[in-house]
Design a protein around this nucleic acid. Structure first.
Length: 653
DNA sequence: CAGTGAGCGAGCTTCCGCTTGACTT
């Protein structure tokens, strides 16, 4: 009997495949890429048509060995990596490996499938194909472009700003977003305005919380207390009636099932989880076989799973909760590579309240519940309700005013039965007895002073949302990118929000000034268009790289010779230097903030920057201070370090 | 659970995207 070897990326995918295939198939995982550009050097022979110098990855040695020894025992190798750009490239390098290292190479075939079911796999095995060279070239173009940008710009930063810094197609643009937001916040000037609410009494009902929306048929603009008082004078004396009463039937569709980006957003908003914590938790659920793959940008649900969900909905909620056909969701962007399904429970019968889920960790239970609810809700019937808009008009000596309140109520709960919306929304009053034209009496006017608010700093949720909209980064990189920009000290987190540091400001302004094309928000989008053309066979990968290099390389040289060294702004702490009497300032180093003299390098006084907590160390009675890890995470330690080694992640009591 | 703090000073730092284990404070 001839044995066959199948190679996929992940061990979990291998295990799943194993369930559908006879023992004559051996299934192994490559654990992602096995061959890549070298880490320690550029690895691109620019003068030889940008020829890449790939190497086997050091940390994949053991896996490569096991792939090779398995390959020696079989007559056929089947590459079943994901059906997307990166998956195709992994297949290509696996093929290369076997031809490179084996004396006798078995036949190598390539298969792809979009869902792991017996049928899909059998079908794929019946129709094996070849590695798509164009798709591999598109991946190579992406890889080399990123390498050139990253490994050429970073050293320039070492030279012009500080050693150890980095720049890249993705990370630099992410920092730019935070930079631009910071600028908007700096430029913002709050405007005073007043809102007026009113309470009326109708014939049968108290009509509360009506908001003033129009004055003399125009927008409400009250910018001072004086204006307000003038207005209140006649509002108080006006006569009021129900000006309009509109009832309307409305429906709402369920949201699509979760994908990496939306899971990260939802967990951040609902539970305050950062992207890494969410992914770590999802990974655990995935390995326990409870959910499908968690790094995906596809809304697809496997056909079999749709059937199970529909049965479950019918059995547990009733026929009226089941739409006539399954709900289908499509991505707006064409960037999605659709290699996987949406994130869903593998078995819909395992409810969040089940004992199996309750035995999980707290985090796992929470993430599972989000995934379970959103998947199932996505396949339920529309919510149906009724909307009411009530307007109350007032009149006094030629002046008119209009107050408004909206209400809604549920007629049929539909998918909202399982709603995991970001905010709990409550039904609003429906004022059943009102009639149009009915006169009402004013009980009270409640003015409130307000100020316009500056734009909000990004959170994990809002930043990931933005990146996805812009098509920057991939499901597997959202979380690592957010960690990286903190690790580099370009940004810091304050109350779960991203705040730009002076270092981030200096680097971003440098890059914006000299490399605006790379910092352009459309740089990635344009690259993706070119990659599509390469994948379609309409463009050669060398063309893309050469076109880029043509303007990038001379610019690099010019900036290196002409640009001045960048000065990083510092923050004064209002204290004099004990050595030279100069101003003491806060600077940002590799390990975070430290205090130094503004006369550096003439005066080299430095001191640690510590945040005090006012607490005493339980071991030696010293002071407890807040330090930060390399990655910017806070932890508590004793100020007597290294004499006292006490430290803790959590705030001591 | 997250992936830490110093000492010399010479050599090193860096990208994005695909995948999981390292092994203790």
């Amino acid at each position: 009997m001839s044995k066959k070897l199948i190679v996929v990326e992940s061990p979990t995918k291998a295990r799943t495949l194993g369930r559908f295939l006879p023992n004559s198939f051996q299934i192994l995982a490559s654990y992602g890429h096995i061959r890549d550009l070298p880490a320690k050097k550029l690895g691109i022979l620019v003068s030889q048509n940008f020829q890449p110098q790939y190497e086997y990855l050091e940390d994949k040695k053991k896996i490569i060995d096991s792939l090779l020894s398995a390959a020696r025992e079989v007559e056929e190798i089947i590459l079943a990596t994901d059906p997307d750009r990166e998956g195709e490239a992994i297949a290509f390098h696996l093929d290369y490996l076997f031809h490179d290292k084996l004396k006798k190479v078995p036949q190598v075939k390539r298969i792809t499938f979009h869902e792991i079911t017996q049928e899909a796999i059998k079908k794929a095995l019946r129709h094996p194909g070849r590695i798509d060279g164009n798709l591999v070239q598109a991946q190579q173009a992406r890889r080399l472009l990123d390498r050139l940008v990253g490994y050429k710009l970073s050293p320039l930063l070492w030279y012009k700003v500080r050693r150890g810094l980095s720049a890249g197609r993705v990370q630099s643009v992410v920092v730019r977003l935070i930079y631009e937001r910071e600028k908007e916040i700096q430029a913002f000037k709050p405007q005073e305005y007043w809102q007026v609410q009113a309470r009326f009494l109708g014939e049968k009902e108290l009509l509360d919380k009506f908001e003033l929306v129009k004055i003399n048929a125009g927008k409400v603009k009250i910018h001072s207390k004086a204006e307000l008082e003038k207005l209140l004078k006649w509002l108080e004396k006006s006569s009021y009636h129900i000006a309009s009463l509109k009832r309307q039937k409305i429906t709402s569709h369920p949201a699509p099932p979760l994908i990496t980006s939306t899971l990260q957003q939802l967990a951040s908003i609902k539970y305050g989880f950062n992207a890494s914590r969410t992914m770590r938790t999802a990974q655990a659920l995935y390995e326990k076989g409870l959910i499908t793959y968690h790094r995906t940008d596809s809304f697809n649900l496997a056909e079999l799973s749709l059937k199970e969900m529909r049965q479950f909905i019918k059995n547990n909620y009733g026929d009226e909760y089941l739409p006539p056909r399954p709900n289908i969701y499509r991505r707006k962007s064409k960037l999605a590579q659709e290699a996987h399904e949406a994130i869903r429970p593998t078995k819909v019968e395992i409810k969040p309240q089940s004992s199996q889920v309750r035995s999980l960790s707290r985090d796992e239970g929470k993430i599972y519940e989000l995934i379970w609810k959103r998947s199932l809700a996505s396949q339920m019937a529309d919510w149906q309700g009724e909307r009411l808009v009530v307007e109350i008009g007032g009149k006094k000596e030629g002046n008119t005013a209009l107050f408004r309140r909206r209400g809604w109520r549920t007629l049929f709960s539909g998918w909202r039965q399982l709603s995991v919306s970001e905010k709990e929304d409550k039904e609003l009053p429906f004022f059943k007895h009102l009639k149009e034209g009915e006169s009402v009496s004013l009980k009270k006017l409640i003015p409130e002073q307000k100020f316009t608010l500056p734009p909000k700093r990004y959170t994990d949720a809002s930043l990931i949302k933005k990146l996805e909209e812009m098509g920057i980064g991939r499901p597997s990189t959202y979380a690592p990118i957010l960690s990286k920009i903190r690790e580099r000290r370009y940004v810091e987190k304050e109350e779960k929000k991203f705040k730009l540091t002076n270092l981030g400001k200096a680097v971003t302004e440098f890059l914006l000034r000299y490399f605006p094309k790379v910092m352009d928000y459309n740089f990635t989008a344009r690259m993706e268009d070119s990659l599509d053309a390469i994948a379609q066979g309409e463009k050669k990968w060398v063309r893309l790289i050469a076109d880029f290099w043509k303007w990038f390389e001379p610019l690099l040289g010019e900036v290196k010779t002409k640009a001045e060294r960048v000065k990083i702004e510092v923050e004064k702490i209002g204290e004099k230097c004990p050595k030279c009497g100069g101003e003491l300032v806060i600077r940002i180093g590799k390990y975070g903030k430290f205090i130094s003299c503004s006369n550096y390098p003439k005066c080299n006084y430095t001191r640690e920057y510590v945040e005090k907590t006012g607490l005493k160390c339980s071991e030696c009675g010293g002071e407890v201070i807040i330090r930060r890890t390399r990655k910017g995470r806070r932890y508590y330690a004793c100020s007597n370090y290294p004499k006292c080694k006490w430290m803790s992640w959590r705030k001591p009591r």
